[in-house]
Amino acid sequence: MRALVVYSHPREGSFNAAIRDLVLDKLQAAGAEIRLIDLYKSGFDPRLTSHELDIYEDTSMNTHHIAEQVDALRWCDTLIFVYPTWWYGLPAMLKGWLDRIMVPGIAFLMPDEANPDIRPGLTHVKRLAVFTTCGASWWLTRLVGAPGKRTLLRGVRFICAKRCKTAFAAHYLMDSSTPESRAAHLGKVARKMDRFIGDVPVPQPVRA
């Protein structure tokens, strides 16, 4: 397993950081190769520039300025997002990552004469997981439509492998959370991760 974890939260001591660390621990225990993209710590600029928009559909040029990020996306077979849900959606930092990194020729293929709609480009990604926190309740998030969840588990899922395995967990009412609710949620994330990567064999030590 080659897992790319995309983490988006500005505060290192946040509960999202605890979720991230748990996810990384589970991956490491499963013997996965891991790459972590910490969008805030790395100083990622989420703004799509005029030049980037001009070359957006030019697959000979549109990855030159984002080569390292694109390499990680091409490398992985497992993609995991850890972030807070703000205003029912993705943080601007994470939405900007999708805007700038999920370009034509990498994430998806543009329509052409033979294909009237976009086609998946991340067919090597066979696992997709989303772990988030929400200030709103479950029912209010559902009422609004959970646009952040839909962007990743429907939009990004569509451009992954046909039978891409998914996992999702959200801690709702995060602003009024308690030590007990946070501990319970970490337990839920742990169980989700166990099922998510359960079919990956753990490497056995080599005996002399």
Rank of each mutant, 00 (worst) to 15 (best):
V6D: 03
S8Q: 09
P10W: 00
R11H: 11
E12N: 11
S14K: 12
N16C: 15
A18P: 05
A18T: 11
D21F: 03
L24E: 12
Q28Y: 07
A29H: 11
E33M: 08
I34A: 02
I37E: 11
D38S: 10
Y40V: 01
Y40C: 01
G43K: 06
G43S: 10
F44A: 08
D45H: 06
R47H: 11
R47N: 09
L48G: 00
H51W: 12
E52T: 00
I55K: 03
Y56E: 05
E57F: 15
M61I: 04
H64N: 09
H65Y: 13
I66G: 01
I66E: 13
I66F: 15
E68V: 10
E68I: 06
A72S: 13
A72W: 04
L73Q: 06
L73S: 04
R74G: 07
W75V: 09
W75L: 08
D77A: 13
F81A: 04
F81R: 02
W87C: 09
W87E: 07
A92H: 07
L94S: 01
L94D: 00
K95E: 00
K95L: 00
G96P: 04
G96V: 00
D99R: 05
R100Y: 00
M102Y: 15
V103P: 00
V103N: 01
I106Y: 04
A107Y: 09
L109K: 11
M110R: 13
N115Q: 15
D117F: 15
D117G: 14
R119C: 06
P120N: 05
G121L: 02
H124Q: 14
V125E: 09
V125G: 06
L128P: 04
A129R: 01
C134P: 07
C134M: 13
S137C: 03
S137W: 02
W138G: 03
L140P: 02
T141I: 02
T141R: 12
L143P: 07
G145Y: 03
G145P: 01
A146N: 15
P147A: 04
G148N: 10
T151G: 00
T151Q: 13
L153G: 14
R154C: 08
G155K: 12
I159Q: 03
A161F: 15
K162L: 12
K165G: 05
T166W: 07
A167C: 08
F168L: 09
A170I: 15
L173C: 10
D175I: 08
A183E: 15
A184P: 03
H185M: 06
H185E: 02
G187Q: 10
V189W: 05
R195H: 12
R195K: 13
D199C: 05
R207Y: 14
R207K: 14
